[in-house]
């Protein structure tokens, strides 16, 4: 079965009220073609798990501006004034999570772990309502793992088996999210035949990838 598909077919897997992980860091490594198509399609009430909400005209920021998100689970919203505005008016729920915690929660979600123990956030409002666990005399916060219905991923190169190579700082959350969602859709700048990526160079094994569209 070929994993190569069209944007339209791939986005059939993104339905209202779903939780969607989207790769990228301030837009670098975000699948812009998938985002643009999702904006055009207008699927609403999405919960988005991502590092940040980018800028109003870039990456995940476009989904904020088009009011398709009901909740954003992110580490940073400072570069997108529209996110702050919608948060203040109550239109958008924003859950802020320390970036390293968010990365590990997603990794844990894909790795079959119930959560992680981290010192990050102890003594701050991040710790409110969370369990503190003492290990060998040192305190840690229990942060539960995160999973999603769909992950939208950006890769530099994909082979037809779904093996992925990322490029420079566009890697960021993409390999982690590729492990943590039921359906993983990859926007790849380059698509090559099986065997054209050396197994030692693979950053995300193809078994995690369901669908590939040309970026």
């Amino acid at each position: 079965m070929s994993k190569i598909t069209t944007i339209e077919q791939a986005l059939e897997f993104v339905q209202e009220n779903m939780t969607v992980m989207i790769g990228g860091f301030l837009g670098a490594g975000t699948p812009e073609r998938l985002i643009d198509a999702l904006v055009n399609k207008g699927t609403k009430n999405l919960t988005c798990i991502a590092n940040d909400t980018a800028m109003p005209d870039k990456g995940i920021g476009k989904l904020v501006v088009s009011r398709q998100l009901k909740k954003a689970v992110v580490s940073h919203i400072g570069t997108n004034p529209e996110t702050g505005r919608q948060m203040n008016t109550g239109e958008l729920e924003v859950e802020l999570i320390p970036q390293g915690t968010l990365a590990e929660q997603i990794r844990a979600g894909g790795a079959g772990l119930g959560g992680i123990l981290t010192p990050t956030g102890l003594g701050t409002i991040v710790a409110e309502g969370k369990e503190v666990i003492t290990v060998d005399g040192r305190e840690f916060l229990l942060e539960k793992s995160l999973k999603a219905d769909v992950a939208l991923i950006k890769a530099h190169t994909a082979d037809t088996a779904g093996n992925l190579i990322f490029y420079r700082s566009a890697r960021n959350f993409n390999p982690l999210m590729a492990m943590a969602a039921k359906v993983v859709i990859v926007e790849a700048e380059n698509i090559v035949e099986k065997g054209q990526i050396d197994p030692d160079q693979v950053m995300t094994p193809g078994i995690f990838v369901d669908w590939i569209i040309k970026g």
């Binding site: 940073h76 990050t120 102890l122």
Partner: peptide, 25 residues
């Protein structure tokens, strides 16, 4: 040695980004 650099409630809420992890590690 307490640090506050990620939000002013009601005014400015950019988020903590990586700062909380950086200061803890």
């Amino acid at each position: 040695g307490n640090l506050a650099n990620w939000m002013v409630p009601g005014k400015l809420v950019p988020g903590m980004g990586g700062a909380m992890d950086l200061v803890s590690g």
